[in-house]
């Protein structure tokens, strides 16, 4: 067993000083060492997208990276989407749109879809419908049939609220 390394992860603006083996995935480190269990793990081989987080603004699969590789990067997870409770806790526009459009059922894929959509809309606020469908086909959902997820994300895009709370 390789010895643990002391690393610092910057997640949602907070520095987490943790100790991990090099083999620990970013998703497991976020969930275990950082206590941020909003990032779910659905397949651990990069297909389902439940673990999608933003790294330096880009959506990535946190199960396909090792935590040690994320040092010095700016990470964002679902816990950082809404305003903090001391700032009123207002939901991000995507979170509210997911509720309003019934874009979730069991909720397990939801964090990944929210982060995928948030990263995409920040990078491409005017993304067209076809490209948006292509991007959202990156993640799997087993409950909703995707229709309401697409609707929710399009609604936020149309309102120009991709980065908004």
């Amino acid at each position: 067993m390789a010895s643990k390394m002391a690393i610092t992860l910057n997640v949602n603006g907070t520095e987490h000083e943790i100790r991990v083996e090099p083999r620990k995935t970013l998703s497991d480190a976020l969930r275990g060492e950082c206590g941020l269990t909003g990032t779910n793990v659905g397949c651990e081989h990069g297909v389902c997208g439940a673990c999608t987080v933003l790294m330096d603004g880009a959506p990535v699969r946190s199960c396909l990276m090792f935590a040690v590789q994320a040092q010095g990067r700016e990470l964002r997870t679902v816990e950082g989407l809404a305003a903090s409770s001391k700032d009123g806790g207002k939901l991000h526009a995507l979170q509210q749109a997911f509720i309003d459009n019934h874009a979730l059922q069991c909720g397990f894929c939801t964090s990944g879809f929210l982060m995928l959509a948030a990263g995409t809309l920040e990078q491409q606020p005017d993304i067209d419908d076809e490209s948006l469908r292509e991007v959202l086909s990156s993640n799997l959902c087993r409950c909703t049939g995707y229709q309401n997820i697409l609707r929710a994300v399009r609604q936020v895009r149309d309102a120009g609220q991709g980065g908004a709370r």
Partner: peptide
């Protein structure tokens, strides 16, 4: 009506057993 289940699930507060 919108779901009572949703607020914890969209904010990453789910209590799935793995958590």
């Amino acid at each position: 009506v919108t779901r009572l289940e949703d607020p914890p699930l969209v904010t990453g507060r789910g209590t799935y057993v793995g958590n």
